[in-house]
Structures are given as C-alpha cells and as structure tokens.
C-alpha cells in the first residue's frame, strides 16, 4: 500500500497540520518508505493470536466516586494563550 499526494493532504488534514505543497512532495517518499518498510509485518502468521492488550498482566483498578479534584480554575487557565472571564477563548466558531 502506498500513498499519493491527495492521501498525504488528507492525513495532514485529519492530523490538523498545515502542509505546503513542498512539504507534501517531501513527505510523500518518506511516508511511502516507512509504510513500505512496515509492510513486512503482513507476512507474519498471526492466526489465532489475540492482539496485545496489557503488556504486563495487570488489572484495571477503579476509583471511588468521590469529588477529590477540580475547583482549581486558576491552575487550569494558568497557561492558556487566551483566557477571558474564566473561559478559554478560541477563534469564533460559526455554527
């Protein structure tokens, strides 16, 4: 499987990374090289093998239903590029 420039643009869009035409041209062979290289996994016989879920046997612990966090608005907003009136602010979205 190899990708074309349209696919590169599509992936970049999905990943929300702006790419110039030049970058697309540069990425195309790089991505195809890497994808071609990982392609070799297809030859492994995985019949009856379950995909790995936890690398070290471990059980999911569950937390008690207690309010133990929050009420830290200043910390939450401390690093915001733009915050106003206790909100994060982003370019206006027209719905």
């Amino acid at each position: 499987m190899s990708v074309d420039t349209a696919t590169v643009r599509h992936i970049a869009r999905l990943a929300r990374i702006a790419v110039s035409d030049g970058e697309v041209e540069a990425l195309l062979p790089e991505l195809n090289n890497i994808l071609g290289w990982v392609e070799q996994l297809q030859e492994v016989d995985v019949a009856g093998v379950e995909p790995m879920t936890a690398v070290i046997p471990n059980r999911q612990r569950l937390r008690a239903d207690e309010v133990s966090d929050g009420a830290i608005r200043e910390q939450v907003l401390a690093n915001a590029p733009v915050a106003e009136h206790g909100f994060f602010a982003v370019p206006k979205v027209i719905e």
Partner: peptide, 17 residues
C-alpha cells in the same frame, strides 16, 4: 477524574488537570 459533576457551576470551576 475526581472533579464534580454538579450542574450550574462557574465556568471551568469543576475541571481537573
């Protein structure tokens, strides 16, 4: 997370990291 689910709080007052 341990932040409260209560309705009607001040904006971002019930937000954990």
């Amino acid at each position: 997370s341990g932040a409260s689910t209560e309705f009607g709080a001040e904006p971002n007052a019930q937000v954990s990291l």
